[in-house]
Amino acid sequence: MTSISEQTVVITNASYGKRMRKLGIRLLKSKTGLVGLLIVLAVSLMAILAPFIAMYDPAKTDVVHRLLPPFWVDGGSMDYPLGTDNLGRDVLSRIIYGSRISLLVGISSVILAGIIGMFFGLVAGFYGKVWDFIIMRTVDSFLAIPNILFMLIILAVLGPSLSTLILVLGGTSWVVYARMVRSETLSVKERDFVRSARAIGAKDYRIITKYILPNVISSFIVIATLNVASTIILEASLSFLGLGIQSPDVSWGLMLSDGRQYIATSWWVATFPGVAITITVLGVIFLGDWLRDILDPKIKD
């Protein structure tokens, strides 16, 4: 027995290495996937190195230099490459710092939603019956309330803060994962290898972790990646509506909401944060689409 299982491990390790190499080659061949990866890496670097690359403190106000245009417009200078906002804060520095919030909120709330959704999806799919009924009707009721409205209400009740925002985004968007994991579990659990594992007396826990999870995980990763994109937009929307990130913290959505009032005279304040959001989300979508092509050709959008 031991030698067989050791062999299996060796074989899977080798094929794992090979698979990773193949993935790498295919990424280099897929132009959009590569662009996506580069964008995501660039934004991540920007977030990590923010204190070193930003020229100013993002919250520092300087009324003398308020509403200065970007450098290529008359009156602008390289001191403030993308201009300043209504309180004289440097737009570029704020965009650099804003990437931290976008990525932090985007990634951590997707992880939270993923864990909750994975758990309920597995329970609903694997145990079925009453559990399935309760969980799926809860999913249905969550889906009947537009997610942005749901989040607005909870944030109004709990009061906006960074951690609440992550909890709310995670706590309301788990339903997507629960639905997907449930339906995958339902189909995997009837397959022969699960039946035979059950026949030799494997426990539920072992069946779930060893047989079902590995078969569900690739669709899960694809959906999670694509959801980082929509979560970044949701965070920006909530901050724009005033119930997300609060000053003095910096968020691209918040910058947009500040800049909106000055759109007639100082277009740059609202324009650049939107460009930052669009490029970041585009990168994540490209990366997610590429992952989907590779990991899970059967799901479509």
């Binding site: 994109a229 937009i233 920006a236 929307s237 724009f240 959505g253 947009l256 800049g259 909106r260 759109i263 007639a264 277009w267 609202a270 324009t271 944060p273 939107g274 959001i277 669009t278 490029i279 989300v281 585009l282 979508i285 490209f286």
Partner: peptide, 22 residues
């Protein structure tokens, strides 16, 4: 189409205001 998905709608709205109303 991907670009349309990536743009936050409120930003698109503000840009439309900027170009076509201001």
């Amino acid at each position: 189409a991907v670009l349309g998905k990536a743009m936050p709608s409120f930003w698109l709205g503000i840009m439309l205001i900027l170009f076509l109303a201001v």
